[in-house]
Design a protein around this nucleic acid. Structure first.
Lengths: 206, 206
DNA sequence: GTCTATATGGCGATAGAC
DNA sequence: GTCTATCGCCATATAGAC
């Protein structure tokens, strides 16, 4: 394991990440980022020129974490159970380590879609693999409805418990952080089973 | 149909609602609210004293829309299909009319749980009906896992497509607002079927 | 590269006339 | 109740010494 270099730039990015995640673009303060990085406010501008550009760098870094390539799996033989297993493992594990990501990304896109549109489109290289995936889903699942319903359902089941964490934790878990985290870990298998369940009943209809 | 009174207070609340929903507490500007209400900034303070209190009033109003009583249904005979139908109808219809609500509420709770905790606890009167509901769910569904997994799944399937609207619309619908709205309307039945599907397979296991 | 000091503008809030 | 004018603060950003 290589120890990361502790350059000033890295330290700033880390501090900025924490503050932006917690407060959002509008609520974050350059002073607080500087304090947390234990440097002076002016230095932030020396490295990143503006709050906007600093935020962009942070968003870029965080958004990268949600766009690993599952695209490749599509090129091999398309086995939906295997793909689903991979998909859930990949994202559930990432979310357990970074539970704040959904709310952060969804909020910031909601507040400022313009800023973010370009970099999302680029990152995802969408035009290629999504239509292929949807087509294959439709074949494999033996459904005659829009396969995006299935895809959105899978994502909902995985992601929403993180996006809605503060509210769900409050209402259903009496604000017990520990209990809710255990619940989220359990959920990995629950989601998988629920979806497999759906897939099987669809196949049996044939 | 009774025409609502157009009192100044109502006009302010409406303008504030629009701006807070669009920009969030931190991003909203009193000046913009005043402009949209076509009044002067000072008048906002005359009616609501501070931005904080104005926000609270708006949040209260919006949060009320998600807390209609389904509790009563529990007191009659507990039929899970009927209850689910009611639940989905109630919330799906409300969301089709107010698609911004999930993202607004989740963001603001995420950014400032303290402000909101009390009024949520009060509104929901949680201590009573949720444990009862969970207990009955467990019996009815013939499951041995935590029934909150089921409940969270239902909510996820209904709510996430709204919470994640800007991103999903961008990635899966090429930003076609109309197409996505149609998708959301279709989804009402899709969610219902997916859940009923799950319930039936659980019952058949018995 | 890193700091102190300061410019510049915008924001929430209030005073006070009408 | 509604307005104009203004206060006081705090945020981003820059100038310039070291």
């Amino acid at each position: 394991m290589v120890k990361k270099e502790e350059t000033t730039e890295k330290i700033i990015l880390q501090a900025a990440r924490e503050v932006f995640v917690e407060k959002g673009m509008d609520g974050a303060r350059m002073q607080e980022i500087a304090d947390r990085a234990k440097i002076n406010k002016a230095l932030l501008h020396y490295y990143f020129r503006s709050k906007d550009k600093l935020f962009d760098a942070v968003f870029e870094e965080i958004f990268s974490q949600v766009t690993p390539r599952i695209g490749n799996a599509l090129e091999e033989d398309f086995n939906i159970e295997r793909l689903l297993r991979m998909f859930i493992d990949l994202y559930a594990d990432m979310l357990i380590k970074n539970p704040f990501i959904p709310q952060f990304i969804l909020s910031e896109i909601y507040r400022n879609p313009e800023r973010i549109r370009e970099r999302i489109i680029n990152k995802l290289g969408i035009q290629n693999f999504i239509p292929i995936m949807l087509e294959k889903l439709k074949e494999e699942l033996n459904i005659n409805h829009d396969p995006r319903h299935f895809l959105v359902s899978v994502i909902s089941l995985i992601v929403f418990p993180y996006a809605g964490k503060p509210l769900i934790k409050m209402v259903l878990f009496k604000d017990d952080e520990r209990a809710y985290n255990d619940f989220l870990i359990e959920r990995k298998e629950f989601s998988y089973n629920m979806i497999i369940n759906y897939i099987n009943t669809q196949k049996n209809k044939a």
